[in-house]
């Protein structure tokens, strides 16, 4: 009887947890639509949004409509997608490598994509070219990592990590080279700014390309969520549970690569989210990837929304995201780490 009561109690707690994890990003999303240098009241935002669903006579200005729909909406959607994507691929990689220190950048994808973007800025500066080159080189980097790490008998995990380090270092050096030769008046600041990450360029066109890639990757990882538990075991132990680890591993890597490369190509390199959000999610829902991955989607999107709110409202100029993700995230994580003693 006590057992049943206890279980009912945890069930209730679970439901509450799930509801808050779903609602949290939605609420912050709505508040963020109001926020900015130009305040739009929640009622007006609601009316503007509803006017797309049903006919309404506008009692708001055209500026308000444009700010909410053309500027903030795509930007916030991008922030949520990227936050969710980086957090879930970070959690996927941490499980895959059975290493809580791993982030989505481990296989060199960000360095590759960063190089592609820097090259694009150097050569043309057109947004389309920059994004295409970023995506292209991000994927090239992971293919290079894969090629280096592959042995006849499959790919041991340490080969994969070391290959990622090699490829990452190589592309980092190429980024430095481009910075070195870039025009310091004009191109260099653009490159540096871009490499620190920003949502300011978000548009519906971007979303049209990026959203299917990021959402696709997230869906694949969510579907694999239970398998990642098994991938996190030792290689032979995982094999003895009858799963094809090489194959499963590459599906996780492919999904994470697509997410990360698409994110970097849309908004530059956003650090820290993919490393730390999985830990925070683990504190809340535990280490089981079945629960962890969906939680990362919620907390990642919530976190990047807030960071982006600060980035665009704190000062007159935009603050690059990677600065904020760590300046706000690091003390917060330090606090959690002290409080829990690293046990979660």
């Amino acid at each position: 009887m006590q057992d049943v009561l206890a279980r009912e109690h945890t069930n209730k707690q679970n439901r509450l947890l799930i509801i808050s994890l779903v609602l949290l990003p939605v609420i912050v999303f709505f508040i963020s639509l109001c926020m900015g240098r130009y305040w739009v009241s929640p009622g007006t935002v609601l009316n503007i949004l509803s006017s797309y669903l049903m006919p309404m006579t506008p009692d708001w200005t055209e500026v308000e409509q444009s700010v909410v729909i053309n500027i903030r909406l795509p930007r916030l959607m991008l922030a949520m997608l990227v936050g969710a994507g980086l957090a879930i691929s970070g959690a996927g990689f941490q499980g895959l490598f059975a290493n809580p220190l791993v982030s989505p950048h481990i296989l060199g994808v960000s360095a590759g994509a960063g190089f592609g973007a820097a090259l694009g800025i150097l050569l043309s500066g057109q947004v389309g070219t920059v994004q295409a080159l970023a995506l292209f080189f991000g994927i090239i980097a992971v293919i290079a990592t894969w090629t280096i790490s592959r042995l006849k008998s499959g790919t041991p995990i340490f080969m994969l990590v070391l290959s990622g380090v090699i490829v990452g270092a190589f592309f980092q050096a190429l980024i430095s080279l481009i910075k070195y030769i870039a025009d310091p008046e004009d191109k260099l600041p653009a490159i540096v700014y871009w490499l620190m990450g920003s949502m300011s360029g978000a548009s519906y066109d971007d979303l049209l390309i990026g959203a299917p890639l990021i959402i696709g990757g997230i869906v694949v990882l969510i579907l694999l969520r239970w398998r990642i538990n098994i991938l996190s075991l030792e290689e032979e132990e995982a094999r003895s549970l009858g799963i094809n680890i090489q194959q499963t591993r590459w599906v996780v890597i492919a999904a994470s690569t697509v997410i990360t490369a698409a994110s970097v190509c849309l908004c530059g390199i956003v650090g820290w989210v993919g490393l730390v959000i999985p830990h925070i999610a683990r504190m809340i829902v535990g280490p089981d990837h079945k629960r962890l991955l969906p939680a990362c989607v919620s907390i990642g999107s919530f976190y990047l929304l807030i960071i982006d709110d600060i980035a665009r409202t704190a000062t007159a100029a935009e603050i690059p995201l990677s600065i904020l993700t760590a300046i706000i995230g690091a003390p917060f994580f330090a606090y959690l780490l002290r409080k829990t003693g690293g046990k979660w």
Partner: peptide, 13 residues
């Protein structure tokens, strides 16, 4: 198959 237990990285239940 029951491997030699080497401890776990993630503390699953």
């Amino acid at each position: 198959y029951v491997p030699q237990s080497n401890g776990v990285v993630f503390s699953y239940s």
